[in-house]
Amino acid sequence: MALHVRQLRKTFKDVVAVDGIDLDVQPGECFGLLGPNGAGKTTTIEICEGLTDPDSGEVRVLGRTWKNDSSALRQRLGIQLQDTQLSDKLSVTETLAMFRSFFHQGPSVEEAIAMVQLGEKRRARVGTLSGGQKQRLAIACALIGAPELLFLDEPTTGLDPQARRQLWGLIIDLKGAGRTILLTTHYMDEAEQLCDRVAVMDHGKIIALGTPNELMASVPMPPKEPRLHAATLEDVFVALTGRHLRDE
């Protein structure tokens, strides 16, 4: 099991961010955590990344726990955080060389640049990159240690449609290379496109779990409404909560 989570709970002051969730991510799988802002996705993923301590519950990453094997685990994970701004004054190559220096194994800086197709920008300062290029660099930084498990927290949020599709292509390539990925998103089309299985989160709980097709098939559409299109994950969410996914 790549990731094994049981009864995870986390409270910030009086807000229950994560309310007793269970998760299992299989090796080689791309698993999506789908939910609106504030559903607890980021808290969940950051607990799995060992950046936040849970109040209670069990987390096993690649069969190990953060408490006992933190430094060994860090060598084996690739992490992209939601709101990291890499240093504007460094070039793409310099940024990756720094991240590469922390890992025992992994691709060379040039190989990582090729993986995310930033070859033409290798000497460019990070500050001059577009949003999509910055995000591809962030993913290259996550790949630089040849991780067994990749965490991507809202990798396409804030990107224009073209850049999103480019990034989807990159993630599909990574899937094709057999990588295990846990990604969060609040775009249902993204989860449909990329994820083998999806957990829908709301108010700190997982309210639905399955393959995108299973989830969409499970939604009973109102009989009077002509079924002009197949159900989307958005319909799943609306059917489960009565709210739209992008409502705050």
Partner: peptide, 16 residues
């Protein structure tokens, strides 16, 4: 500035 950019958090997510 590194903390504000969440860069420190990103760095401690590596084996640094």
């Amino acid at each position: 500035d590194s903390r504000r950019r969440k860069l420190i958090k990103r760095m401690v997510a590596t084996p640094m």
